[in-house]
């Protein structure tokens, strides 16, 4: 530092624009880091891959009984999944065949009495066919449809006639990060939607069907070929 600077630096500092608050810089650094991870990672485009994931699925209410003031809903369920992704051509799109298995207790809530009760366990298996394409870098969209299969632990209540299945549509985002040339960490968030009713509900004159949304968050690995 020069002598002149020594003489004038104090004044220059006063005249200069006040420095940004440190928090702003920290936030900007975090945003930049996130953007670099999202955009800067090698995209997983048009590669055949097999995914194994684990996570959780949260389901909406299966039945809202307005007359008996009762709600039936599965608890948040641990979920495992497998998927195969196949490139659809030379572009960045893939067809994804995915299946997830989740299992949790089936809970009934009586809104008048304020009681909650477990009615055994309910397993669900969903089988999906989805299209997948790029958004930015390692972030990709998925959209498709398939079927969900309900497997109750006992044939009782709304599942008196046993297992049932419904059609569903699903969409979500998936993010991947390379761990090695052929192995990627994948994280996906998905929402799917279907309408729920069963044979016994129809037989007992329940009209229409209940709209059910499920949210899933899964993480796992993808082996590409």
């Amino acid at each position: 530092m020069t002598a002149a600077c020594w003489r004038y630096c104090e004044r220059w500092r006063r005249d200069l624009t006040a420095p940004l608050v440190r928090r702003h810089l920290r936030r900007m650094r975090r945003l930049l880091t996130a953007a670099m991870i999202t955009v800067g990672t090698t995209p997983l485009a048009a590669q055949t891959g097999v995914q194994l994931t684990a996570g959780v699925t949260s389901s909406g209410i299966l039945v809202t009984d307005g007359v008996l003031r009762t709600k039936l809903r599965p608890a948040i369920a641990p979920t495992i999944g497998i998927a195969i992704a196949i490139p659809t051509g030379k572009g960045p799109y893939r067809a994804v065949l995915a299946a997830h298995y989740s299992r949790s207790s089936l809970r009934v809530t009586d809104t008048d009495f304020g009681t909650t009760d477990d009615l055994g366990t309910l397993a669900t298996i969903d089988a999906l066919v989805m299209a997948e394409g790029p958004i930015a870098g390692a972030l990709r969209w998925q959209f498709g449809g398939g079927a969900i299969f309900y497997r109750p632990s006992a044939n009782q209540g709304v599942f008196l006639d046993g297992p049932t299945h419904r059609w569903l549509i699903a969409g979500g985002l998936t993010w991947s990060h390379p761990l090695s040339p052929h192995l990627h960490l994948v994280v996906d968030g998905r929402v799917d939607s279907h309408t729920f009713t069963t044979d016994v509900l129809v037989a007992r004159h329940y009209a229409g069907a209940q709209g059910v949304q499920r949210f899933g968050l899964h993480a796992g690995v993808e082996r590409t070929f």
Binding site: G60, V63, T64, D65, G66, V67, L68, F143, I169, G171, V191, S193, H194, T195, F196, T197, L201, R204, H205, Y206, A207, G208, A209, Q210, G211, V212, Q213
Partner: peptide, 18 residues
């Protein structure tokens, strides 16, 4: 498609009156 999702998710089953 987004509208379809929303419509499908908002329906409530109709309970028969006794």
């Amino acid at each position: 498609l987004g509208m379809l999702l929303v419509v499908a998710a908002c329906g409530t089953i109709g309970s028969p009156l006794i």
